[in-house]
């Protein structure tokens, strides 16, 4: 079966890849592009471990057919940090001990980024619903929610932002 050639913008870079039409975006990222930061926890959109941002919209990459991303922008965990510093969410997750095993962490970070992009100062409840599509079995969510709230505070406070960089 001939494979489909797909061109998209991945973490800011125009890239292309070959895939079978039945492959998901998750499979294309991991198996074709070697981008293993995006995780598979269920393959049915119920755990959020494979969360990526597609044209600004948070999605489960396991529920997107790979050819769908032709001409579109994809953001993954690998693109979250800048060259010389982490995203404030990454700093907060590190300092706030927001993960134990860490396998859900990339998905949580992408969901949290999408949330803060849309709502820079969410309430605790908004944070909880904003990451309700992401399962974490280790932490009980407490430190994740606190870390996202902390990142929001850092990002809205120019002093703390300067400090971080």
């Amino acid at each position: 079966m001939s494979r489909t050639h797909v061109t998209c913008v991945l973490n800011g870079d125009e890239i292309d890849f070959l895939c079978n039409d039945y492959q998901t975006l998750l499979s294309a990222l991991r198996d074709e592009l070697g981008m293993i930061g995006t995780k598979e926890g269920c393959g049915t959109g119920d755990c959020g471990a494979c969360s990526v941002i597609l044209d600004g919209q948070l999605v489960c990459s396991c529920l997107v057919f790979a050819p769908e991303v032709e001409g579109r922008r994809v953001e993954t965990i690998e693109g979250l940090a800048e060259v010389d510093h982490l995203h404030p969410l990454q700093d907060s997750f590190l300092e706030g001990a927001a993960f134990q095993c860490g396998v859900c962490t990339p998905g949580f970070l992408m969901a949290a980024k999408a949330l803060l992009d849309r709502n820079p100062s969410p309430t605790e409840t908004e944070v909880r619903y904003g990451v309700a599509g992401n399962l974490c079995r280790c932490t009980g969510y407490d430190k994740i929610v606190r870390s996202i709230l902390d990142a929001a505070a850092r990002m809205s406070d120019p002093e703390r932002q300067k400090e971080a960089t």
Partner: peptide, 15 residues
Amino acid sequence: GFLDYRMPVASDLPM
């Protein structure tokens, strides 16, 4: 599956 094996999600819980 995680749809009907219902583990707690973040919005189910307090701190």
